[in-house]
């Protein structure tokens, strides 16, 4: 009789008070282990590998916007020293060529940005330059999208984006780097 009543008490009193704590524990554990930090960066598409150097000599010189960077992180744009902050505007002018300048590109479809760095160039400088070129193209595409579709490139649907991409293709050619300033 006494034993039976004690067993009743045992089954009736499952303590649920700690369940909340366990739940919180799990919750916090997952909160801690999940990395919320999103990774952002400049998304590029590398060209396929081929052993022979591409021949760019037959290209019309006016269609090539050549950028050379040396191991001291100095720029040579179309044969003249330049600074990174000017790069975006110069690239935009070169790609669109609004004044029909015979030294700038014939049309955006033919414009080629040629980038060549040294093995001793700082990655930071390289990315800065890449960022400016991407910025130039993004701005041009936005301007074109606004003109044609009345909305920025990000808000267009896939078909409209394709039209914009065909009108202003992003052609960036990267030559094998020179080897003057490789660090030891």
């Amino acid at each position: 009789m006494a034993r039976k009543s004690s067993r009743d008490r045992m089954t009736n009193e499952i303590n649920a008070g700690a369940m909340a704590d366990i739940a919180f524990l799990l919750l916090i554990f997952f909160l801690v282990t999940t990395t919320i930090v999103e990774d952002r960066g400049i998304l590029v598409r590398l060209p396929p590998w081929s052993d022979e150097e591409p021949d760019i000599t037959q290209l019309n010189e006016r269609n090539v916007f050549s950028i050379l960077v040396n191991a001291q992180n100095q720029l040579l744009v179309r044969g003249e020293p330049a600074r990174v902050p000017d790069l975006r505007d110069r690239a935009k002018e070169f790609i669109m060529n609004p004044m029909d300048d015979p030294t700038l590109s014939e049309s955006p479809q033919r414009a080629i940005i040629s980038l060549r760095n040294d093995r001793g160039t700082n990655y930071e400088t390289y990315l800065e330059i890449y960022n400016e070129i991407m910025g130039a193209y993004n701005e041009l595409r936005d301007e074109f999208s606004l003109q044609r579709f009345g909305s920025t490139y990000d808000n267009l649907d896939l078909e409209q984006r394709r039209v914009v991409r065909e009108e202003i293709p992003m052609i960036i050619s990267e030559a094998e780097p020179t080897e003057f300033g490789e660090e030891g």
Binding site: D39, R40, G41, I42, L43, V44, R45, L46, P47, P48, W49, A71, N117, D118, R119, G120, T121, N122, Y123, E124, Y126, L127, Y130, N131, E176, P177, E179, G181, E182, E183
Partner: peptide, 30 residues
């Protein structure tokens, strides 16, 4: 990639990626 690294090692990595046909690359940046 650290900003102060020179392009030599980065180019080697890019070349390897191109050889294994891993073309989609993201240069991580802040």
């Amino acid at each position: 990639v650290d900003g102060q690294v020179t392009m030599g090692i980065v180019t080697d990595v890019k070349t390897e990626l191109r050889k294994v046909e891993q073309y989609k690359v993201n240069y991580s940046a802040r």
